[in-house]
Design a protein around this nucleic acid. Sequence first.
DNA 1: GGGAGGGCTGCGGATATCCACAATAGCCCG
DNA 2: CGGGCTATTGTGGATATCCGCAGCCCTCCC
Lengths: 198, 198
Amino acid sequence: MTTLHIVDDDEAIRDALGWLFQSRSVPVIGWDSAEAFLEAWTPDMAGCLLLDIRMEGMSGLELFDRLLGRACRMPVIFLTGHGDVPIAVAALKKGARDFVEKPFNDNELVDRVIDALAFDAEQRAREAGQAGVAARVATLTQREKQVMELVVAGRLNKVIADQLGISMRTVEVHRSHVFEKMRVKTAVELTRLLTSAG
Amino acid sequence: MTTLHIVDDDEAIRDALGWLFQSRSVPVIGWDSAEAFLEAWTPDMAGCLLLDIRMEGMSGLELFDRLLGRACRMPVIFLTGHGDVPIAVAALKKGARDFVEKPFNDNELVDRVIDALAFDAEQRAREAGQAGVAARVATLTQREKQVMELVVAGRLNKVIADQLGISMRTVEVHRSHVFEKMRVKTAVELTRLLTSAG
DNA sequence: GGGAGGGCTGCGGATATCCACAATAGCCCG
DNA sequence: CGGGCTATTGTGGATATCCGCAGCCCTCCC
């Protein structure tokens, strides 16, 4: 189980939530402002975010926007005592995971947080696989990438050679290097690797 | 542009919305109850749904649930004068496209509807392609499907032959039939066809 | 009983792919 | 300057794939 990050400028609420979640074995880290969290945030931070909307300084919504700008993928649950429908709808459409009004039901909130944490774990597992693929792609030379694209597009070596203006033998060499670097044995495996990961 | 289906038991609102959308060249069909729409609904119905939540008889939310149960893919926009945050959040998490409170801004509503219609059109185009693939898969015999799966899994003919306990030549024949019926020329193309469509 | 369709197999040849061995050439870096 | 990386090409042979031609078996159906 990864960590729940609670961002709320009200220490009493942070403490109450911290107690609630720790009693359910959910690791918690509290942040007393959006600014503090934003500064500490790194792309490898895992878990989920419980975000109060109304805070001194930067609001929870603004923090959310900034995190989106930094390609943060952590699921975000908004917590608010002043929520209205347009804000909730906008937040969810932008990709927020959930939106909970105070006062909330403890069990329900815990369920939603656990749900979000599980989602994050799955997402990270998927991305880890894709990152591995991306890392292998990064080791390819320009020519190898070109050849790989054409191979994955289903072209025969002969056609690829024509298209790149090089000999078939050279295509074979590049193709072989691509297979080796991408750790696959057939064009089909390579295609699956690249189309399943986008 | 496909059709906007307005479900609202208040004739005055249906008329007002009808006038609004027709003035923006959005074709509209009005329904005076969830029951009426549900009865008329067919899987090939295209466009989007503008759904009032509070109605006599079946509510908009219940209609939405029933449509989901029937695998309806039309984008749904809820319209309500009694919306509260939990309902909006639940609806959006279940897959509703949008949630708009009355009174609404005409231009904004029109924008959202047009957005939803465009989404539906794209989605239908995608599904049409997938349906074509599914139709071709349906013409395959059992043996051909088995061979196809192994081909797409990247196995060599030799391995497939072993695995199915038949000769390589037979695998070649099935493989060739699969390519013909699926209208592809290489295993890579076949893989793309099947992995992009799920 | 004969025809249609699906499944299985062999033969042989045309293509394609995979690979070891070998070589040329440009570029960058210590 | 020599070494490493990239790109390029060739020869020749082992594998794999693609395909037409031919034949056999079984089931379902008219």
